[in-house]
Simulated scan of single mutants.
Amino acid sequence: METKINIIFRSCDVVNAVHNAPRPFDLDKKTLIKICFKSLHNAIKNYNYSITILGDNLSEEMKSFFKEFDVNLIEGIFGNDESIRQTIKIAEQFNDEEWVYFCEDDYLHRPETFQYIIDLIENRDSVFPASIKIKKLLRKREITLLSLKRFFKKPAIVIHPCDYPDRYKFQYLTKNFIFLSRFCHWRQVSDTTFTFLMQVKDVKRKKNILLKSSNSANDRYLSKNLYGTTFFFKKLLCVSPIPSLSTHMHIETMSPLFDWEKLKDKLLKEI
């Protein structure tokens, strides 16, 4: 069955940044949203998809921009916490076997984003955490003394399409699984923002965690309770690509190993 991605794009052009973090390339919020959405649309347009825009107190300029595309525009005055809760309600309406991409409006996407993601989704049976093995060398032969599974049931995956630069800093280095797909590597991660992909049936299964994490937009609670680290009992395996397929558009968190400015310049000519 062809993979379908249902995108729920949360957008608000009133607030420049929740934590007042500076934006790259001197972009104002409206322009930033436009190029981020255009990059997302360019990346998904050749696949099976739907796009819902959850507009939080949007300006008339942004409403007009989104209406140029084949999207379902939902308008309201929500605030950050309630807008997260609304995305979960929307996601529950999709078919269990489909996927949902919860996407904030300040992530820029590479053109091949969904080519890589859909390939991983369709071959995800090959992605699973290896057992813990204790071995001993005896007479030039390596013998396994103990093999301990990290899960009772193979964990479902969550995909966070952004590779953050702080994961390479010494104080944050941890042992993670690395997986190889047809197009790139994927690193196990144990923390994300509210931008990630899940299968709809997993959204329904983990609804209580997702809803609780919306209080004060608590992505730390989300990550701690949703993603496994060493063991995956009742938790999910979250992975992000190496190199990154998207970047969070804050100066201090731009993903490495890709020319985002060149992509930005190209998109500015398209909007």
Rank of each mutant, 00 (worst) to 15 (best):
K201Q: 11
L222A: 03
L180V: 11
P161Y: 03
N123G: 09
C184L: 13
P161S: 08
V127K: 09
N215C: 07
T174A: 11
L197F: 05
N218T: 05
S213N: 07
R220I: 11
L180M: 12
Q188V: 06
N225G: 06
L226E: 05
P161V: 05
D202E: 15
L148N: 03
D163G: 03
R205S: 11
S147P: 01
I209T: 07
D125K: 15
N123C: 09
R110N: 11
A156H: 13
K201C: 07
F170Q: 12
V200N: 01
T174F: 07
N123M: 09
Y227A: 00
I157T: 04
K140S: 15
P165M: 12
Y172S: 07
K224Q: 10
L137N: 13
K133Y: 03
W186T: 00
I157Q: 01
K136W: 02
D202Y: 12
V203P: 00
I178E: 09
Y116E: 14
T174W: 05
V203M: 01
T195I: 03
I121T: 09
F232Y: 14
S216M: 08
K133D: 13
T229F: 09
L222V: 03
K133S: 14
S126A: 13
K169V: 07
K154N: 09
S216N: 13
F196I: 02
Y116D: 14
R182S: 14
S131V: 05
E142P: 01
A156Y: 09
Q188F: 04
K207D: 00
K136Y: 02
E142Q: 09
F179T: 02
F231L: 10
F183L: 07
Y116G: 02
V127G: 07
I117C: 04
F233P: 02
